[in-house]
Design a binder for these strands. Structure first.
Length: 583
DNA sequence: GCGCCTCCGC
């Protein structure tokens, strides 16, 4: 009713005021119904042909909160001679929609009509190519950017970096960055995100210093901190993370909720639960993300009961858990072997909170059942799922079959993986280990032959250890580290000592050579004074042998050892592990 | 005028 009066009032005013108030009304309204009335009015008066009206109208209808693609397209089609800005609006609308590839068609169409794209058109169409993973389109746009001389446009080039980074072409993104004559903080941020996304976490951390050092230095902003904290989590770079925390305090970001949440996650993922909890308690207005981060922190560090307590506290505070909260909680139950608690939470999640379990939730429950030996039940659960089982969930069960030496089920599971055409080297290694644990050497030889025939290559795993803020990396049977000879020497010495303590190298695991985590631990013993905590991060899951090795090391050398593997933390102390062998 | 961004898991 209100809008009706507003529009009908327009003609009574002088033309100037009429137009001005109409435009400001378009810019301020957020109601689709009001915009539809205006649309009808613009059409009736042919004012829609006037860019002064059509541009703000298109912006309003195509951008959030309305984002109405249908009306944007209809309006666009009613404009008889669209200009570049109109096209840009539509390309942007497609970039934000579910059909990003159509943005590229509009871009091509506009060029066919001899309209030259400007910086904005190129920026939006690049985004379309990024979202639709169109390598072909992106390369064409890149060529156009160079041809039209936009190589000074920082903003446009940053968008182009995103295209390469998202398409897994990190090197090309870096090249665009290197050739940029000017860089702002956002360009640096995209570089960090590019490194993180493409697995070059170390380089991501280096950027934090590089950007401050540079000639035309840029100060990291809050987004830089978020990204770098993520990189610290991935690398288990605790000391680096602390430095970023200091930077956050010094630059007044310590009250930003997203930064605080990232800090909780970073400290948790570096195994520093006390620090994580300290930051967590200092957050005045904790949201779901904060609570989930803390639950996950306890969960991945093998403290399932505390994770459940935090969850209870969260409910007392009236914060509703979301799907991710339950994933964290259920994974906590599985890491700590809390079968009944896990089952009850899985049940309450559906009954009380009305959430439909997704593949991750099922994955956690399968993991939980598998760990405690209910492998057949876990198999039944996967079969009963409403969603399609993926390779990962089968792989989880395969791992459980290995732990419990269930050969027949293991074979059935690998068949499923083969059906999904998703079998990886790691899956064969697991099956291989199942056979060798059972002493079935014929099958071992047969499978090895099969792997050779299929050309399956095992990727060497790597472990890292941080000393004085510097990251040292070791691979299986490493030969590259500068102090590798000393490392092997001390490793032999350690093994001798541990054997006296009762450690025996297990021969059930096939790949028995110098595992990277052993090398990293040995380096820790070598390079730090006695009594210093050893913190190692590993990209795959730790094997039984290395687990025993670490347990014994913690007792014989009186060192606390922390190993973060692909899925969780292991805190070793006085010959025991926080995981109680539930891993 | 447009770009980067917090919590989960197998």
């Amino acid at each position: 009713m209100h809008s009706q009066t507003t529009i009908s009032r327009f003609p009574s005013l002088s033309t100037q005021t009429h137009f001005e108030s109409l435009i400001s009304f378009i810019k301020s309204t957020t109601k689709t119904t009001q915009l539809l009335e205006i649309h009808a009015y613009l059409l009736r008066t042919s004012l829609i042909q006037n860019t002064t009206f059509s541009v703000p109208f298109l912006n309003r209808i195509s951008l959030p909160p309305l984002q109405n693609l249908t009306y944007s397209l209809r309006t666009f089609s009613q404009i008889s001679r669209p200009i570049v800005t109109h096209y840009n609006t539509i390309i942007r609308a497609y970039a934000m929609s579910k059909y990003p590839e159509k943005g590229f068609y509009v871009y091509r169409d506009m060029m066919r009509k001899s309209k030259s794209p400007n910086s904005q058109s190129l920026s939006f169409v690049t985004k379309c190519c990024t979202k639709s993973c169109s390598v072909f389109g992106g390369l064409q746009v890149h060529a156009r950017i160079l041809r039209d001389g936009y190589c000074f446009d920082t903003l446009l080039l940053t968008t182009l970096m995103e295209f390469y980074s998202g398409g897994g072409k990190g090197d090309d993104a870096c090249k665009v960055f290197d050739e940029m004559p000017q860089r702002d903080t956002v360009a640096w941020n995209v570089l960090v995100s590019c490194y993180t996304r493409n697995g070059r976490t170390r380089d991501a951390l280096d950027v934090f210093d590089r950007m401050q050092r540079g000639e035309h230095g840029c100060d990291p902003d809050d987004v830089t901190c978020l990204l770098v904290l993520q990189a610290c989590s991935n690398m288990c770079a605790f000391e680096f993370g602390e430095r970023v925390h200091q930077y956050v305090k010094d630059h007044g970001y310590s009250h930003a909720l997203n930064i605080c949440n990232s800090l909780v996650a970073m400290y948790s993922k570096c195994g520093q639960l006390d620090k994580a909890y300290e930051v967590f308690q200092g957050i005045p207005n904790k949201d779901v993300v904060s609570w989930t981060a803390m639950i996950s922190g306890f969960a991945s560090n093998g403290r399932g009961r505390e994770a459940i307590n935090v969850f209870r506290e969260m409910q007392r505070m009236g914060i509703s858990p979301d799907e991710q909260t339950f994933t964290a909680l259920l994974s906590g139950c599985s890491h700590s072997g809390l079968l009944d608690e896990g089952r009850s939470i899985f049940d309450r999640m559906q009954r009380v909170f009305g959430l439909v379990p997704n593949i991750h939730h099922y994955g956690c429950v399968v993991d939980l059942m598998g760990r405690v030996g209910l492998v057949e039940d876990a198999y039944e659960l996967i079969i009963s799922m409403k969603c399609k089982p993926d390779a990962t969930i089968w792989r989880t069960l395969l791992g459980a079959c290995k732990v419990h030496g269930n050969l027949t089920l293991g074979e059935r599971v690998i068949e499923r993986l083969i059906e999904l055409k998703a079998q990886e080297a790691g899956d064969y290694i697991l099956l291989l280990n199942i056979y060798s644990s059972a002493g079935n050497w014929e099958k071992v030889i047969e499978l090895r032959k099969l792997m050779k025939e299929k050309g399956i290559q095992t990727t060497p795993s790597a472990s890292t250890i941080e000393l004085k803020g510097e990251i040292h990396e070791f691979k299986v049977d490493d030969t590259s580290h500068p102090r590798i000879n000393e490392v092997y020497e001390i490793l032999d010495e350690i093994e001798k000592q541990l054997k006296i303590g009762g450690y025996n190298a297990e021969i059930t695991d096939v790949r028995l050579s110098y595992h990277s985590e052993k090398l990293a631990m040995a380096f820790g013993v070598l390079a730090t004074p006695p009594g210093t905590k050893i913190r190692v991060a590993k990209d795959l899951r730790i094997c039984t042998d290395c687990h025993n090795f670490a347990k014994m090391l913690s007792a014989v050398y009186s060192r606390e050892v922390t190993i973060r593997d692909r899925t969780r933390f292991h805190h070793f102390r006085e010959g025991r592990c926080s995981c109680n062998d539930f891993w």
